[in-house]
């Protein structure tokens, strides 16, 4: 799949724009890169600076004498690795389950007429309107009544409830914009309903599945409030909970906080870099048909 995607990109560079226009677009693109990367760059370089260097005037645009002291503090803490393991577990379960459950709902809504469809969609959205701070205590009480507080499954179902609205809505859009006649054509070509699903719907909605899973992953990986209330035992803490111990009443250990953030952001970015070329998969699949 990657090969055709790549060749396609080469053959159709920037939808045939004029060179002058292309230069302007590229310049704008570079500006976007700069604006979105700079705070992250600042965070990452801060993690390598000693406190005097962080406060230097004029600011050090790069760490003049890079120091690993903050990183060492993070990686030397056995609790950090526990937290990474817990977060990986929570995220590893949440992402596939969320995508599956949401995809099923999206198919139902986009491909079937049934009563209460619009209401379901609106209600899913409505549920999101209630501020999380107001929900966190009752959710904790619900989970603890059924014995799911202080447990990974409890955290996972909570995350599912907050991922589903975005996921269902996004995927519904993707499924809906797959032309029905494409599917029907495949079926008349001898494909079963499953076959049509696998060959037509799945590849064409892949970009949506990827966007959804990145969303789910980031939410499950970074969420703090619900994790703080639902989890009790320190050996179950996720990374964001662990990170907050650098925030004490006497001040915040910024260096360690930033170093920790750099380390925990990395898996998300790696995950995305691996899946991102499939964002172009829709095009490829379209080409199969054309």
């Amino acid at each position: 799949m990657p090969a055709p995607a790549r060749s396609r990109r080469r053959e159709r560079p920037a939808t045939g724009a004029r060179p002058a226009a292309r230069a302007v677009w590229t310049a704008l693109g570079v500006l976007v890169i700069a604006v979105w990367i700079f705070p992250v760059y600042w965070m990452a370089t801060t993690a390598f600076k000693s406190t005097p260097a962080m406060e230097a005037d004029p600011p050090q645009l790069w760490p003049h004498t890079p120091s690993l002291i903050h990183f060492r503090k993070v990686v030397d803490d056995p609790l950090f690795w526990d937290a990474v393991r817990n977060s990986a577990l929570v995220t590893g379960i949440t992402v596939p389950v969320a995508v599956l459950v949401a995809f099923a709902s999206a198919l139902a809504i986009a491909r079937f007429r049934f009563r209460g469809r619009g209401t379901y969609l609106a209600a899913v959205m409505l549920v999101q309107m209630v501020p999380h701070v107001a929900l966190v205590v009752p959710i904790f009480l619900t989970l603890s009544d059924v014995g799911l507080s202080d447990s990974v499954p409890g955290l996972v179902v909570t995350y599912l409830a907050f991922i589903l609205p975005f996921a269902v809505w996004t995927l519904r859009g993707f499924v809906a914009s797959v032309p029905k006649d494409l599917e029907e054509a495949a079926m008349t070509d001898g494909c079963t309903r499953m076959g049509a699903f696998r060959r037509i719907i799945l590849p064409l909605t892949l970009p949506g599945l990827i966007a959804t899973s990145v969303y789910a992953m980031i939410l499950a990986w970074n969420e703090y409030l619900f994790a703080y209330f639902i989890l009790a035992s320190p050996d179950k803490y996720t990374v964001p909970l662990w990170l907050t111990h650098f925030v004490t009443s006497e001040g915040t250990d910024y260096g360690a906080l930033m170093a920790g953030s750099v380390i925990v952001s990395t898996p998300v970015v790696i995950f995305f870099m691996i899946v991102q070329r499939h964002l172009a998969a829709g095009l490829t699949a379209g080409a199969v048909k054309g």
């Binding site: 693109g29 976007v32 890169i33 700069a34 979105w36 965070m43 980031i218 970015v269």
Partner: peptide, 25 residues
Amino acid sequence: QVPAWCRRGMTFALVMAWSVPTFIS
């Protein structure tokens, strides 16, 4: 509209920014 390298740079920058927890950023 941009060349592939620039597009990759943009997605990289955006996902980097997205992956940082709000309280840190």
